[in-house]
Design a protein around this nucleic acid. Sequence first.
DNA 1: CCCTGACTGTTAGACTCCGTAACTGAAGTG
DNA 2: CACTTCAGTTACGGAGTCTAACAGTCAGGG
Lengths: 241, 241
Amino acid sequence: MPAAQQGPRARYREQTRAEIKEAALRQLADGGVAALALTRIAKDMGLSGPALYRYFASRDDLLNALIRDAYDDAATAMGAAAARSEAAAHGPRERLHALATAYRAWAVGEPHRYLLIQGSPVPGYVAPADTLERARAALGPFLPVFTGGEPGAGVAPVVAQMEAWLTADTAVADWVAAYAVEAAGDPAASARALAGAVLAWAQLHGSVGLEAAGQFTGMGHDGDSLLVAQIAMLADAFALA
Amino acid sequence: MPAAQQGPRARYREQTRAEIKEAALRQLADGGVAALALTRIAKDMGLSGPALYRYFASRDDLLNALIRDAYDDAATAMGAAAARSEAAAHGPRERLHALATAYRAWAVGEPHRYLLIQGSPVPGYVAPADTLERARAALGPFLPVFTGGEPGAGVAPVVAQMEAWLTADTAVADWVAAYAVEAAGDPAASARALAGAVLAWAQLHGSVGLEAAGQFTGMGHDGDSLLVAQIAMLADAFALA
DNA sequence: CCCTGACTGTTAGACTCCGTAACTGAAGTG
DNA sequence: CACTTCAGTTACGGAGTCTAACAGTCAGGG
């Protein structure tokens, strides 16, 4: 829905919202979530304090908007990587590699945004419903990679659990069906896909999350080779070609 | 150094510091880092605001103390698990399993403390020097597990990088030598140990970090089976017995 | 035994930030 | 052209960090 012909007022409003989010991301980049202060943003923009409340109901509201944007951004990055790899007629192993690399590139390119969506949440925090959908869009491209895999003994329990989850939660089943089209109607293949994607998520968060949090600074390896090793293990566990 | 015969004043001081940290952990547990407020702690303890500054120079100082404690706690938990597994004469694979399970148990038992040490840091934050040492103490028990492994092709690049790191950083070499006594003087075995430990760290953070951050709530699997699958992959990659 | 000094606590206050209330001016809209 | 909507303002209350100045108290040396 392009806000183009929404009237000049609405357009200006969207523009200002975007400008606020830009300033917020700058503050986020140096100083973390704690450093994001509405008053400071206002000062940066030449506005005065409460004016921002015309655009965002609260600091949390702004933060949620940033989270949404980050998910969307990550999802499009992953979708693009999937399309590229698809176009290159890669095999599953190579596709997994491409997706993982894209994931890491996005995350370490903007670590503050990665930490925003995958970092420490407030204990009481419950993500808005659409967040779950966006997260699924970001991880969806991993699903079709594993449909043709042959899970080894180590990961078999996870596959079994996923099969149960698929029957219990239709939303998840729909998600899997939407991305892993080959597996549609095949419970075993769907469970494989889901298990692979979840494991990929965990593997990725392992190295990428630590790297984004700066835990690797001063260490004698680069995050890329670590990630490559992790996804190689995962590909082996599913006997990907 | 037991503060027992340090005079009654110093003893009382330590006791109050501990009491403050307790209250701080309670606030941390429900509400996250953002909810930790010195004034509220003071109110909880029947004190009034600035009194706490007699015990901690600042909010950050208190936070650092909590981080130190958390590392120490995690390190002793891991050390105990290692000792238990050693006593049971477990093989490397079983030892890895025991260590990983202990790691997860500590982390999900007190997720706020795990997130405190492995979660999102402030961008400009530089850990105090002793933190690195404590982190090494927590991860050290993983080192000896991998000395006898045979790294497969997927993880070989990481092993190679670790070998280079070991020659470049004597502190790391000392750390490895201290925990992986079998590998002392054997560069290849030391590199294997280091690579295994770093990969184990990444694997663990993958599932445990996501679980501690609450990302698995409402999902159809338990964190334990995911972790078990991940360490099985790692054990396979090093061909552990 | 008492006196001194260090230590623990207090209140007052400066500063920052979030968020609300009430008001003002200037657009867009009928 | 009148009217309404909306963006912006100042004023304010509440919470939090931290400093400053001051008061009571207790340990330990002369």
